[in-house]
Design a protein around this nucleic acid. Structure first.
Lengths: 164, 164
DNA sequence: TGTGATTCCATTGACGCCCACGATTGCCCA
DNA sequence: TGGGCAATCGTGGGCGTCAATGGAATCACA
């Protein structure tokens, strides 16, 4: 299970703006074989996308959907590649976000790492809470829509247990 | 027989917040070949869903229904990956729930493990009793609706369950 | 030589691991 | 068939290790 980013962690930035990458995330990055952390601003969210080679790959995939000379490609490349940064990870596993990145996510002195499988996001904690509420609402809708499609047990299966 | 979570068990948390996974559940997890316990908050219940690879598989299945770059995927991944936790199991077969997980289920110093076939749930004992009562009541209604369709013994058997 | 960035070290608190105990259960044997 | 033995399981606690954090020291480049 060390090959996916899961769960969320809230850490504090110190006086120099450094923040520890959660240990479990570092393990995933190490397995991905990446020195440095790949970070860019999320397109529609006040958050940052971060990861290793796996994230790089998904960005290339997105761009590959468009002709390299199209306006769309140009726009996406600007948004993704143009705002990307490769952050150095210090010996203790900490990174320092640039002002631009912090501004985009509205980050002050704490931030939340959120696992997304192949990548993870970085949020300002309060904003993440709100976003999570929205996500749960959406999941309810999807669950209803998928109801009876043979995906047992992802959420709220209603069976009762037997008495012992 | 050892490939499904069945029955329910109520165990105590010790002073350090640790709680033993029932032995029979551990056997199922071991067969699933999983190091660590996959846990997330149930969507519409004050309970936790837990399991091994089988449970994780259902999450991947849901996400796989959406494009990895869509807003939809982002939201669902937030609710699923972002709130899941992989808990370590100590040599005695115990886990420690995070504060977030305990808060969601209202867990104090005891909790109830409830088998659900391919996964199991974790409840605060009193809430589970209430939930079970409600489930039984509704089952009576369902049985009435099924009237004589030959479904003996629904109440008291373990429902759900994916095939192995 | 000053200023910022990077690395090194030190602290503290949480967590994982080891060992121990008691109670229940199932088994064996008289 | 009953008593005792052994194994298993839940529980408790001590201790070492590691992660997160803070701050000092060192390096680089202007």
């Amino acid at each position: 299970m060390t090959d996916r980013f899961v769960s969320n962690f809230t850490n504090r930035l110190d006086a120099k703006g450094r923040v520890s990458i959660p240990s479990s995330f570092r393990a995933v990055l190490a397995k991905d074989g990446y020195e440095g952390l790949y970070v860019h601003q999320a397109l529609d969210l006040p958050a940052l996308d971060a990861g290793g080679n796996a994230l790089r790959g998904t960005i290339d995939d997105i761009l590959a959907r468009f002709s390299p000379f199209s306006d769309e490609w140009e726009l996406l490349s600007t948004a993704l590649n143009g705002t990307s940064e490769v952050l150095k990870v210090d010996p203790e596993g900490r990174i320092t976000l640039s002002e631009a990145l912090k501004a985009h996510a509205g980050i002050g002195d704490t931030l939340t790492f959120v696992g997304h499988g192949h990548k993870f996001q970085i949020w300002e904690p309060e904003r993440f809470r709100a976003h999570l509420d929205a996500a749960k609402t959406r999941l309810r809708d999807v669950k209803r829509a998928l109801g009876g499609l043979g995906t047992p047990g992802i959420v709220g299966t209603q069976a009762g247990g037997a008495g012992t």
